[in-house]
Amino acid sequence: MRIVFGRRLAVALLVVLVAGLLFKVSYFQENLEAYLFPAVVAATVLCLSLLSLAREAFDLCIDDFQPFPIGRQWPVIVIMIGGVLLIDTLGMYSTTFLVLLLVGYWYSPEEALRRRLVQSVSMAAGFSLAMYVLFSILLNVQVPRGFLI
C-alpha cells in the first residue's frame, strides 16, 4: 500500500513539473499578446496539477494505474521511430515493407523459423501492396519514393 501511494505521489509531482515547464515557456515571452492564450491555458494546467497533487497527498483518489509490459513493447517503438527516419531515404513503400517485416517477424507466435519468415514476408508484401493500390493507384497520393519503388 505504501509503495503504491509513493508511486502515485511521484507521478503527481512529475505532472506538476511538466505543467510548470509548460507555464514557464508560455508565460515568459516577449510578445505577451501572441502568447496570451497559451499562457492562460498553461496556468490552468499548473493549477489543476497542483490540485491533483494535493488530492493524491491526502489520498483522496482511487488507484487508476495500470502496468505496461515495456519488455515486449520497446522493439515496436524502436522499429516505428526507425522506420519514420528512413522514409525519406528508402521511400514510403520500401520502408513500409521493412517495418512490417520486422514487426511481423518479431512478434510472430510461430515457433518454426521458416514458417515465421514466410508468414511475415507475405504479410508485409500483402499490406504494402494493398497500400500501394489504395494510395498510389486509386487515390493518387504522392508519397516519397526511394529504393526500388
Binding site: 517495418v99 512490417l100 514487426v103 511481423g104 510472430s108 499490406f127 508519397v143
Partner: peptide
C-alpha cells in the same frame, strides 16, 4: 494480434 498491430501501424502511417 501481431498482424493487427502491423495493420494498424501501416494505416496510421499512410
Amino acid at each position: 494480434k501481431h498482424t493487427m498491430a502491423a495493420a494498424v501501424i501501416v494505416l496510421a502511417v499512410f
